[in-house]
Design a protein around this nucleic acid. Structure first.
Lengths: 284, 284
DNA sequence: TTTAATCTTGTAAATTTTTTACTAAATGGT
DNA sequence: ACCATTTAGTAAAAAATTTACAAGATTAAA
């Protein structure tokens, strides 16, 4: 049983460790990046313990040995770049902040992926598959997400609408019928106008799929809630990467529905490609 | 100069390698995952060469030794899960395809990040910073990207427009003045209407920032070209993840411009947060 | 075709690194 | 205070990697 997140495992085992092993654990948590390149002697010296203690520490947290531990740590750090620093500062060079933007997005995606409640996602796919009408609601940054979703489902031969205007949204909501689906997208999960629309949809017998932070009013009000939490580590970043997470969640929904629709999809996509080709320069 | 993507580096160096080193390279590319757990003797035996040859191979592709090579490989595989399989099949479970969607997106982002021409990105940031008007053009899936970009820059106190309609786009293009910027977004890089608009912008003395695949007409026509290539590995996926890549590239642009604008930004963001708060349910 | 020079690859030895076995010290309970 | 048990270090063994060197292969020139 090797957990995906080694640092998490270290923290969990920390109380069970012996004093000198704990010294190693604390040093490791404090110096994640450098540890990857250290030999056992270096780590032992810096943590003020002997080499066998380091090996014992590695075994205690579930690794087979020191190499195994370093490998696991390296893998975790590669997939969660946030363990470095991702706040953009005034002195960052282009390369610095560009990488930070990409890395924080990647980090958010991986975290969202690992915390998705797959049952709810499955329920959402089924609901969309069965629905006659599909509507996307979102304000602000989520408006762009809603329109993107509409476009995406359209490519899958599923007619969808997207509304960013509260009035249109309410009109749409009241016109939905039993088993129709509205997807409510919100980064804050606390948009009042969106909550209004959600109630209207439910009164009409429609199903509301909420894409919002867990414990938010939108998540609570939705029939099926897909929780997307992004850590609020930076004022500028948060809206950026959580919006990407929303898009990718909808991608997953779209792929799920596409899969359910089965083999016809391929031919539809190739026909669509042909018709798009006329709007483009010919390929070389 | 250690490239972020080791496999890419292996492929690049492949022709320069000697025969037996190439045996190692081919075996490694064929067995990426298992190699991480191998010792030098195992790898040497399975690749039918001697141990020193393995070391020479590691050095040839830019690593300091075998351990260094394994570490780099482990890190890459952790962050680019696509080296497994990412094509969605009919028999995939929810978990399978959801993870594939997320992983392929992450993979695309990392690849795009590593292939960005930072000089061009920097030039783009400067151009936007200096411009009086900023317009985003995109059709189809890129329309949503354009509108998202508009919203994003608006939050940074930069007025921008987004057009998905060819007529409006042309009108906008002819009305631009010297040093104004139009960002042309295209997944295919071959949209005829977009190429028209690009020419109009250039005739007006405006600067065109192209976000499109390299070697595409859009990239060639743009004043400053930001190249985003997504491997065409899957008909359904490609538009999905390349669109995300475009969004994140624009995020990086936005952050770059924000940084240039400097310290005033913070207070602006907090004022904006306050005014948004009234549209939301109060925090607990 | 032969020969010399260079390049390529493996063998074996040396070095480095990790792990094990064992002992001394420390801790805790009676 | 004494014994049992746990904990941590020393030193030796084992394992793994790297280096030095020599044999074989390849290429170019005579």
């Amino acid at each position: 049983m090797k957990p995906a997140l080694l640092t998490q495992s270290i923290n969990e085992e920390l109380p069970k460790l012996r004093k000198s092993e704990r010294k190693v654990a604390e040093f490791v948590l404090q110096n994640l990046m450098p540890v990857i390149r250290m030999r056992i002697v270096d780590l032992a010296e810096r943590a003020q313990v002997s080499e066998p203690t380091v090996v014992r520490f590695c075994r205690a947290i579930g690794c087979r040995g020191f190499q195994d531990f370093k490998l696991a740590l390296a893998q975790q750090l590669a997939s969660s770049p946030s363990h470095g620093q991702i706040a953009v500062t005034d002195t960052d060079s282009i390369k610095d902040y560009t990488f930070k933007v990409f890395d924080s997005t990647v980090d958010t995606l991986l975290r969202v992926r690992d915390n998705l409640v797959l049952e709810n996602l499955d329920a959402a796919v089924s609901a969309i598959y069965k629905s006659k009408r599909l509507e996307f609601y979102g304000f602000g940054a989520s408006a762009a997400v809603a329109f993107d979703a509409q476009h995406k489902f359209f490519r899958l031969q599923i007619t969808a609408s997207a509304y960013a205007d509260p009035h249109l949204q309410n009109m749409s909501a009241t016109s939905l019928e039993l088993d129709d689906v509205a997807v409510a997208i919100s980064q804050s999960g606390r948009s009042l106008a969106l909550l209004d629309s959600i109630e209207l949809v439910k009164n009409s017998g429609g199903i509301v799929i909420g894409i919002a932070p867990s414990h938010s009013p939108v998540a609570a009000a939705a029939t099926i809630s897909i929780q997307v939490d992004s850590v609020d580590d930076n004022q500028i970043f948060t809206p950026l990467s959580s919006r990407i997470a929303h898009l990718v969640v909808i991608d997953a929904l779209a792929i799920g529905v596409a899969q359910k629709k089965g083999p016809n999809l391929d031919s539809h996509l190739s026909r669509m490609r042909e018709s798009l080709a006329s709007l483009r320069t010919p390929l070389d």
